[in-house]
């Protein structure tokens, strides 16, 4: 437990860590990938489709970083373009129509940063997801498995439950970015990481996530078995929930409120 925040950032970024597809392949059965946003393209940084979680059909959406150099380049290093967010929303709307729960795996340093992404409305794509997810009438669970970089991560995490792996991180800005803006010195990233309070433990203390998932057996099948069971149990609970959308709204509504009033 003596690990620093920045050490966790480095673990969260490690190429050896399981990626979105590892979770899909190890937790679900009969996964069919569905491509494309129906407007412009298929974003390879986000993988989505339907599958069985135990006996339940679910919609699964995962940001995929890839392992090898070639895969990582193909996946834009897990930095989605607007099409990725629009594909994710399309699949979520489809899930709502067919009363399927949605499970998202989040792992991104942030939304893709480029000329094309701006031309095609990266801001609009993220904003729309935030709005639409808030009233998506089906249970949504998001699991942060690596990096949770800012709005690009939040766009898949306006959910009923948000869980983080113990070495996953979640932040409004990268520690390097924060250090170079505030102190004009990117090498102070470790100081920034500590001060940004971006670890799973911090997020849980703030009430921003519900649970931390242990990584003790991350290289063993039992790791995925446990997540599968946990997802299944939680979804069954959420499906019985009468005030699902009211509670989702309140989940976010409450954040920061007591700090600024009175």
């Amino acid at each position: 437990m003596s690990m620093t925040a920045y050490e966790r950032v480095k673990i969260a970024r490690s190429e050896k860590r399981p990626t979105g597809l590892d979770y899909i392949n190890n937790i679900f059965k009969t996964f069919y990938e569905f491509h494309g946003d129906r407007f412009y393209a298929d974003d390879t940084a986000i993988v989505g489709g339907i599958a069985y979680l135990e006996k339940m059909p679910v919609t699964v959406i995962a940001i995929e970083k890839g392992h090898s150099a070639k895969e990582r380049a193909f996946r834009s290093f897990g930095m989605p373009n607007p099409e990725g967010y629009r594909k994710a929303l399309r699949l979520m709307k489809q899930a709502e129509k067919f009363h399927r729960p949605v499970i998202c795996f989040v792992d991104t340093s942030g939304a893709f940063c480029g000329i094309g992404a701006e031309e095609r409305g990266q801001g609009e794509a993220i904003a729309r997801n935030l709005m639409e997810m808030m009233t998506l009438n089906t249970p949504v669970i998001s699991i942060f498995v690596g990096e949770g970089g800012s709005g690009g991560a939040l766009a898949l995490a306006v959910s009923d439950r948000v869980w983080m792996l113990e070495n996953a991180v979640y932040s409004v800005i990268s520690p390097e970015g924060c250090a170079s803006i505030l102190w004009k010195d990117a090498s102070k990233a470790d100081v920034a990481a500590r001060n940004l309070k971006m670890t799973a433990e911090d997020a849980k203390n703030f009430g921003i996530i519900e649970e931390i998932i242990s990584e003790d057996q991350i290289d063993k099948p039992i790791f995925y078995e446990n997540i599968k069971k946990k997802l299944n149990d939680e979804i069954l609970l959420l499906m019985k929930e009468n005030d699902l959308l009211e509670k989702r709204y309140e989940r976010f509504r409450a954040i920061g409120r007591p700090l600024v009033q009175g």
């Binding site: 904003a127 935030l130 709005m131 639409e132 808030m134 009233t135 800012s150 709005g151 939040l154 995490a157 306006v158 979640y170 932040s171 409004v172 800005i173 924060c178 803006i181 505030l182 940004l196 309070k197 971006m198 911090d202 997020a203 703030f206 921003i208 709204y249 976010f252 509504r253 954040i255 920061g256 700090l259």
Partner: peptide
């Protein structure tokens, strides 16, 4: 953009405000 000195709290304001806009819109 978001105020980085407030970390995750500021990031969450994006979801919170979007939720309020959606309810107003609906």
């Amino acid at each position: 953009g978001a105020r980085m000195q407030e970390g995750l709290y500021s990031l969450m304001q994006m979801a919170k405000t979007s939720g309020a806009v959606k309810r107003h819109s609906d």
